[in-house]
Design a protein around this nucleic acid. Structure first.
Length: 578
RNA sequence: GCGUCCAUAGCUCAGCUGGAUAGAGCAUCGCCCUUCUAAGGCGAGGGUCAGAGGUUCGAAUCCUCUUGGACGUACCA
């Protein structure tokens, strides 16, 4: 559709100049747009901008341009409508081309090469090992996974990386509380998912701290002991970290999240130190009387920032500098995208700037994909007030609701395995919900409403997919569909659907450019809605005309393929029955 | 204080680089299961696009200010 628009732009440009004669030269950048309603045509050119130069009314220009263009084109039709030239495209070629494209590419329909030869690293998730994942992590994971898939579908080579924050005072707090109150219990003995088991002691620590202010200092001491390699502390640390990581990995498996490489903070946290010292030698940084190393950021209108403490220990920022450099060595990327919440914008601004100062020419290829917070109707989630929405609980709840719905509709038999189907519905609901809002925006999770499966939701999309599958199952062998007579698809409703199928690759490209999965979410919802109305109004199988049945089945088949491909990009499992 | 971002229907969100009466879902109220699964379809009501200026033939969209909010501005991560 893009190239068609460009061609038409050129034609309109030429026609405009024909009217202008040699008086005026017009900008080649002719404005194109989509008409607000399908009845108005497929593509529109507003004529307002040329009124002044041509000394004619927009409406009369529209008439002239339409005439000129019509005389030279027997494929598309041009119609002046008020100040607009509205164009109806010849449907035959586009339809034929679109269908054969889908038929040929199948699972890779939508794939394009706009990001070919790019190596893109995507960092996301980055959990702490003191507690299980919550809803905020789920948004991070959804975005990270989706963006990675989208970029790969744009031809890039993508490497997904995770950085597990397994070091620091937070894990020491859980460790202390466990040592104090755990009494040698284990996740197995208590039959609690292992990350939740550890999280329980993190909460326990907070309670303890209220009665015993000493606890804070004890945690810091434990961290020091850890850094010194105290064997007892290390042993406990290893054990508890494993519990958490095992539990988190189980959640990853359930939500379809995976990584090409996992970094552990405990292994990388010292890596930045040498870089800072090198920078100090080069005079990029400076040291104060306490041996603290600083960077002056007044060149980007920011304050100064500590890079190394006086005792030589490193900070979050220090570590991230080291990690970035290590990553570039491990896998020389063209771009590194950090999927991290918006609250860390300042951090990344500073990080990128410092890497630039250190002379890494790839510093300007680092990008912070800053996504908004997930809030509750009452406001921010607060662990202290126990309002944090736990990831596993949420998924379990959604799964139960889906299972109840299946039973309620008496679909057990058709669905087959209720457990796996319910899980897929839960996942579809969750990912669609999290990805349908633009990443940059904060969003509100209203438990009551967000658990619904009706309306603009993942399950609605899955349901449409299941209906298409059902129709195609009833149709039988779909092999012959490539020979279907597509000219029978003459309804406007069919044309609207075909156009949507046609532009799918363009939407994929745009979503990649803008790093915005929500474009795909609203695209597929649009397609689902149009298809839903279409098959409701026009029988695919029971219309009494064998050729028409084949043509419509072919349309179903193409829509199904786009569903599958688009679904996979935004983490919605495709279901053949539900 | 300073910086970044945000403000569209009662609620949750769309609205592309400015363009034709501002769109969905939820909620409310009607209608539709003897035809491919009603997790569905159709219809109704509901908007001074926070407010005020400006640029433009034309602004929800761009610029300025005001108001209201989020986040940040730690030798936390």
């Amino acid at each position: 559709m893009k190239d068609i628009k460009v061609q038409l732009q050129k034609k309109v440009y030429k026609a405009l100049n024909k009217i202008a004669g040699d008086n005026e030269i017009l900008s080649e950048n002719v404005i194109v747009e989509n008409p607000p309603k399908p009845e108005l045509g497929d593509i529109a050119f507003p004529m307002f901008p040329y009124a002044k130069v041509l000394k004619k009314s927009p409406a009369s220009i529209a008439v002239l341009i339409s005439d000129i263009l019509s005389s030279d084109d027997n494929v598309n039709t041009y119609k002046p409508e008020g100040p607009y030239v509205n164009i109806r495209l010849g449907r035959e070629n586009i339809t034929k081309q679109t269908f054969s494209d889908v038929e040929e590419k199948k699972g890779s329909y939508g794939f394009n090469t706009s990001r070919q030869n790019e190596k893109i690293m995507v960092e996301f998730s980055c959990p702490n090992t003191n507690k299980p994942l919550h809803l905020g992590h789920l948004r991070n994971d959804s975005i990270g996974e989706s963006i990675s898939k989208i970029l790969a579908f744009n031809g890039a080579v993508v490497s997904k990386v995770n950085l597990i924050n397994d070091r620091g005072v937070h894990i020491c707090k859980s460790m202390l509380a466990y040592r104090e109150f755990g009494g040698g219990t284990t996740p197995e003995s208590e039959k609690i998912k292992s990350d939740h088991f550890v999280g329980k002691y993190y909460v326990e620590f907070d309670k303890w701290l209220k009665k015993n202010p000493e606890a804070d200092k004890m945690a810091r001491d434990m961290l020091l002991a850890w850094e010194k390699g105290d064997p007892e502390v290390r042993e406990l640390w290893t054990k508890m970290n494993k519990w958490t990581v095992d539990g988190i990995e189980e959640t990853y498996r359930k939500t379809g999240v995976s990584f090409d490489r996992i970094y552990y903070e405990s292994q990388t946290y010292t890596a930045g130190r040498d870089e800072i010292l090198k920078g100090l030698e080069k005079g990029v940084f400076y040291k104060d009387e306490n041996n603290t190393v600083w960077v002056d950021l007044s060149d980007i209108n920011l304050d100064k920032k500590v890079l190394l403490r006086g005792d030589g220990t490193s900070l979050y920022l220090t570590q991230d500098i080291g990690t970035a450099i290590a990553r570039h060595n491990d896998w020389p990327f063209n771009t590194l995208i950090y999927v991290v919440a918006s609250e860390q914008q300042y951090h990344f601004k500073v990080l990128f700037h410092i890497l630039g100062k250190l002379g890494y020419e790839w510093a300007d290829k680092l990008y912070h994909l800053s996504y908004g917070m997930v809030n509750l109707p009452e406001g921010r989630m607060k662990s202290r007030e126990g309002t944090v929405v736990d990831a596993d609980d949420l998924i379990a709840e959604l799964t139960e609701l889906a299972a109840a719905e299946i039973k309620n509709k008496e679909r057990e038999e058709q669905v087959g395995n209720i457990d796996t189907t319910s899980e897929k519905i839960a996942l579809g609901a969750l990912n669609y919900f999290l990805l349908s809002a633009a990443p940059t925006k904060d969003m509100i999770f209203n438990p009551a409403e967000s658990l619904s499966f009706n309306g603009n939701t993942g399950p609605y999309l899955q349901y449409m997919g299941a209906r298409i599958s059902s129709i195609l199952r009833k149709y039988g062998n779909t092999e012959g569909l490539k020979n279907a007579d597509l000219s029978l698809l003459s309804l406007d409703d069919e044309w609207e659907i075909i156009k949507l199928i046609h532009i799918f690759p363009e939407i994929v490209e745009e979503a990649g450019q803008e790093l915005n999965p929500s474009l795909l979410a609203s695209y597929i919802y649009d397609l689902a809605k149009k298809f839903s109305k279409y098959y409701h109004d026009y029988p695919v199988l029971n219309n009494g005309n064998k050729s028409l049945v084949a043509a419509r089945a072919a349309l179903c088949s193409a829509v199904r393929q786009v569903f599958e491909n688009c679904f996979s990009l935004i983490g919605i499992p495709y279901l053949d029955a539900m």
